[in-house]
Nucleic acid binder design. Structure first.
Lengths: 233, 233
DNA sequence: CGACATATTGACTGCCATCAAGTAGAGTGG
DNA sequence: CCACTCTACTTGATGGCAGTCAATATGTCG
């Protein structure tokens, strides 16, 4: 399902890229220095809900989904993890979500005890851990607003703009350049609290309105960001 | 709109009550010792979105709502603050939400700098701040699941059970005892991503189903918790 | 090419929102 | 104590957005 690999190549290339996403430089280094890189194939489980939270994770490449399943199969994706994102640090003893690879991915794992040790190292380290939780909180709160009060069009517009922002961090591309969508329609739907059909229809509408251009199902260009921001709410 | 008062009486009574809600004993003491108590009348604004975040808050008595407004008036309540709850600590310089009193309330305020100072005092203090953010994150994530995937009935059932849990902490009452609902139907609706009509109708349905008993609009008894938990998802 | 997963499109349904009365409580003044 | 008023809540009728069910299209990989 997943195997240990050596990823010095990955480490160097990502350490060189001045990513602005993770607010916690010290934590990132912790993963680079004492983390074990693991490869996960598409749809492989990284950890499961209620499983002991022995490890914390950082995405090196690929993409992951952090989600919850209801007893009848309904699924809600809380967040996507893209390169640089840290996830799986828990207050309690067990994971409160399931984490799965969306695409073939490399994830670095560090022991829970190492994170705790890091937190008690110095004030700066403790602050970065607090900042990480706070940033996750802010993201979750934006998500609450989206799910509670936005229409399908607004949700999809917000999603596209958010994805453009994160993918612009890694690849310094032009504004109107096409971007890859790493997740399936089902993933997008479960993130936005919609169905695949509604996501698909909304994207088609956006294309008809001239807001986006779909080169393939997984490759989209934002043609009219101003209009998308209007729809943002 | 709001005035400074002396609340030694409040402080003593609440310090005596062994509340299990706040996970951070040190932080609570910070508010009790160096916080200024302020009284807010119903619907008074405690702070406003985008306002400088000079103060953090802790509810002494009453209840508050932490919410966001969209440009066209749609409102989403992210969380309710009940006695003991701490809110308004921000990573950035400004508040990302509006906080308002739901009922006449007493709130203790401490300077942002005091919180920062507290965080750098020792490892235990830093940890409690991290734990606070993490707990808020967990609550927000549950909220995401509720708004993304639950039906109206499930949302209301979850809300009632949650309220019963928190009010059971302050007042050690019997399980089937009636509890006061401090917030209006509009507040509940804006918290659950519904309309007042749907909230009202759902409560009426629950009463017809024998799950709850509404003595008045703001006083409810949970008659069949097992059935409510079924609806929880 | 053929098989399978993924995505799109169409027809129809249903849950919840909207619009509109009607009712109940809380507070006020006579 | 009782009208009066105002706000909060409930109930009813109707509509629309997104969900469901179903068929077709587009990739993707052996």
């Amino acid at each position: 399902m997943s195997k240990m690999i050596d990823t010095d190549g990955f480490r160097k290339s990502f350490a060189a890229a001045p990513s602005e996403r993770p607010p916690c430089s010290g934590l990132a280094e912790l993963f680079e220095q004492s983390g074990a890189a693991m490869q996960f194939t598409r749809n492989a489980e990284i950890y499961c809900e209620d499983e002991p939270a022995d490890y914390a994770c950082r995405v090196v490449s690929g993409a992951v989904r952090i989600c919850k399943l209801m007893s009848d199969g309904r699924r809600q994706i809380e967040a996507f993890g893209l390169p640089g994102d840290i996830f799986g640090i828990e207050l309690g003893d067990s994971h409160r979500f399931t984490a799965e690879a969306i695409a073939d991915s490399v994830v670095r794992l560090v022991r829970r005890s190492a994170v705790i040790g890091f937190a008690t190292r110095d004030a700066e380290a403790a602050r970065s851990l607090w900042a990480l939780a706070t940033r996750d909180l802010e993201r979750a709160q934006e998500h609450v607003l989206l799910l509670g009060r936005k229409t399908a069009q607004e949700r999809v517009a917000t999603f596209l703009l958010g994805l453009a922002r994160t993918s612009a961090c890694g690849i310094v591309g032009r504004a109107d350049q096409a971007m890859e969508i790493p997740m399936s329609r089902q993933d997008i739907a479960d993130y936005l609290g919609l169905t695949i059909e509604t996501v698909s229809r909304t994207l088609t509408q956006f294309e008809a309105m001239g807001l986006i251009a779909l080169r393939t199902a997984r490759n989209v260009a934002l043609c009219d960001r101003a209009a998308l921001r209007e729809l943002n709410g």
